[in-house]
């Protein structure tokens, strides 16, 4: 009784019933779609971010380990990070880019926290959010120690939702 129309069309090879699409129309449609796809793709690739060939670690030499006092925050403005040495001697390198909308946070020594000038987000010294609108802790950079020096891998910021102890590096 109930017959699906499309089911009987191409499968049985009865091309006469497909009056709407003849060979010429089919090829024209095909060529148009291919050309538009090609142009779309080329335009998209033109605008697409060019990724660097390798995500090689670029280590920034922050200085001697012994230089950093415990419980203090050291700004590295041009490299866009803050180095915080915790009370227990561990290091964490925080990106200065606010996780809310990308402004540069400042360390406010009187309030002992990072503050974003754009939308008033505030972060603890380990990067945890104190005041919204930011919802994620500040990104951090991997740290390595070599010859008693603190090296910060500024090429690879790590996204995180909150602070935990495994992000702290010890000598």
């Amino acid at each position: 009784m109930f017959k699906l129309k499309w089911a009987s069309l191409p499968v049985t090879g009865n091309f006469k019933t497909m009056k709407k699409i003849n060979r010429r129309k089919f090829f024209r449609g095909l060529i148009y779609s291919l050309v538009s796809l090609e142009f779309g793709y080329v335009f998209f690739r033109l605008l697409k971010l060019n990724k660097p060939a390798s995500a090689e670690a670029i280590y920034y030499d922050a200085g001697e380990v012994s230089f950093f006092e415990k419980g203090r925050v050291y700004p590295f403005g041009s490299a866009r990070f803050f180095l915080y040495r915790m009370e227990d001697g561990g290091f964490i390198a925080l990106s200065s880019r606010c996780t809310h909308l990308g402004c540069i946070v400042q360390f406010n020594a009187s309030n002992d926290r990072f503050e974003c000038p754009c939308h008033a987000s505030a972060f603890e010294k380990n990067g945890r959010v104190i005041t919204s609108p930011a919802t994620r802790a500040l990104d951090y950079y991997p740290i390595a120690f070599k010859d008693d020096k603190v090296l910060v891998d500024t090429g690879n910021p790590v996204r995180r939702s909150k602070f935990d102890q495994s992000q702290v590096m010890y000598v």
Binding site: L101, C103, I104, C118, H119, P133
Partner: peptide, 21 residues
């Protein structure tokens, strides 16, 4: 490297920025 204190989006997007707060 320096965000000025209170950076604002263009005024016609300020509704969004306010909403974001």
């Amino acid at each position: 490297l320096v965000s000025p204190n209170h950076s604002k989006a263009p005024w016609y997007f300020m509704g969004f920025q306010e909403l974001l707060m």
